[in-house]
Amino acid sequence: MDTAPNPARPADGHLTITPSILYFGTPVVLLTTENADGTVNLAPISSAWALGQTVVLGLGAQGQTGANLAVRPEMVISLPEPRQWPAVEHLGGLTGRPEAAGHGPRRARYEPDKFRATGFRAQASHTVRPPRVAECPIQLEARAARVATAAAGDFLIVEARVLKVHADPRLVVPGTQHIDPAAWSPLIYNFRHYFGLGPELGRSGVSETPCTSRPVSAVPGR
């Protein structure tokens, strides 16, 4: 009897691989910052996560966004919907820094007015100078508390303190300060492909909003 291991199924059940990127399902945000001449830069960011009232962002070290935040820490973090992915993808091929044009995997094109180029509209903020993206259902006015170089040296890690949150009324649970998770679907960047959310599976034990679907049974042994 042949007992040789199946190459499609390693003995320990997993393949050891070296992927070029680790975007294992992260939300896309659009970041507006102020240029030195008072104009605005708009950029898509695929590395963002929140803890309390702090949002941590990962940025390319050579981009206009990082250069702006190093000296002008105000920003707006706008969250697009899944249907807006074509505009987000178009935005990803533009740069607000002339010297960065033609570089990187996209060979980015210099564009000083990214709002006009992508069809997004600027909406005045309340507490910071950069504008919000009007079409985005959730917008966070924020200020960078720390901008540091990542361990590898080619990225920046930005810790941003959220100052004010704006939400489309359709996303807010009536009479509360809560976003309705059944009404909100972020644009997800999953190994360089765009996705929305699937059906709700259940909710955390600390959630303050009700579950809108029948929870899936827990995995045995977990």
Rank of each mutant, 00 (worst) to 15 (best):
P210Y: 09
G175F: 10
S125M: 07
M75E: 08
T54W: 15
T33C: 05
L57C: 09
K164H: 12
A67Q: 09
T33G: 04
G66N: 12
V76W: 08
W49A: 11
V147P: 07
S207D: 13
P174A: 13
M75L: 05
V172I: 02
T3I: 05
V206N: 15
I77G: 06
I138D: 04
A160P: 01
P86I: 13
I138N: 08
P44T: 01
I45D: 06
R107N: 02
G202Y: 15
A145G: 12
S185Q: 11
R116G: 01
D12S: 04
A8T: 11
S213H: 10
F120G: 07
P169H: 07
A117M: 01
L15S: 14
P10E: 15
H166T: 08
R161I: 12
L42E: 02
L59G: 01
A8M: 14
P19F: 15
Q139M: 09
S207P: 08
L51A: 14
E208W: 11
E208P: 15
V88P: 11
H103D: 11
V216S: 07
R106F: 06
L163M: 15
G221K: 13
P27Y: 09
F191S: 14
P10S: 05
L59R: 01
Q53H: 12
A160L: 01
A43L: 13
P44G: 05
L51F: 10
T118Q: 05
G60K: 09
V29I: 09
Q64M: 00
D37E: 00
P80L: 02
R143K: 02
H193C: 04
V216C: 06
A167Y: 15
A117Q: 03
G58H: 06
V206K: 00
G13D: 12
A67G: 04
V55E: 04
Y194I: 06
W85F: 13
